[in-house]
């Protein structure tokens, strides 16, 4: 394991990106007015707080995404040994996919994939 390289990469990334911000902070002209903190500096003045309730659709999509995210976790190790194991692995993943396709079909039928 070459975690030294990983740490070096992390530290270098931190220096490069953080250094740019720190450097620009020192050379930028410091001035302040109220317009600068608005969400759109040169647009229609914003009316109220940006904290508002979001569409419930986002939550549904996040839930569906999470299910397929878990699925990916199982597919990666399977893909690693597919060539080695051959047919049994293929049959197993087809059953796996079939069951999950049922779920996707259910989501489709219930119009959960439709944005409203």
């Amino acid at each position: 394991m070459q975690s030294e390289l990983l740490v070096l990469f992390f530290v270098l990334g931190l220096i490069l990106s953080g250094g740019a911000i720190v450097f620009s902070y020192f050379i930028m002209p410091h001035s302040f007015n109220a317009t600068k903190v608005e969400a759109y500096e040169c647009g229609i003045p914003s009316k109220n707080n940006s904290w508002s309730q979001f569409n419930v659709g986002y939550y549904l999509f996040a839930l569906i995404y999470l299910v397929f995210d878990v699925e990916i976790v199982f597919i990666f190790p399977w893909g690693e040994v597919l060539k080695e194991v051959g047919k049994p692995a293929l049959v197993e993943i087809l059953i796996f996919f079939f069951v999950l396709a049922l779920g996707l079909a259910y989501a489709w039928k219930k119009k959960a994939l439709k944005w409203e």
Binding site: I64, F74, W78, E80, I95, V99, G103, L104, Y106
Partner: peptide, 29 residues
């Protein structure tokens, strides 16, 4: 992990692997 996951014999987890898909289906529904 992959070898154990698709192994149907001793120390294999092929059945749990398929059951996981049922679990995910239940979670989705």
């Amino acid at each position: 992990i992959g070898l154990h996951l698709v192994n149907t014999g001793h120390n294999g987890f092929a059945l749990p692997f398929e059951v996981v898909s049922i679990l995910l289906l239940a979670a989705l529904i």
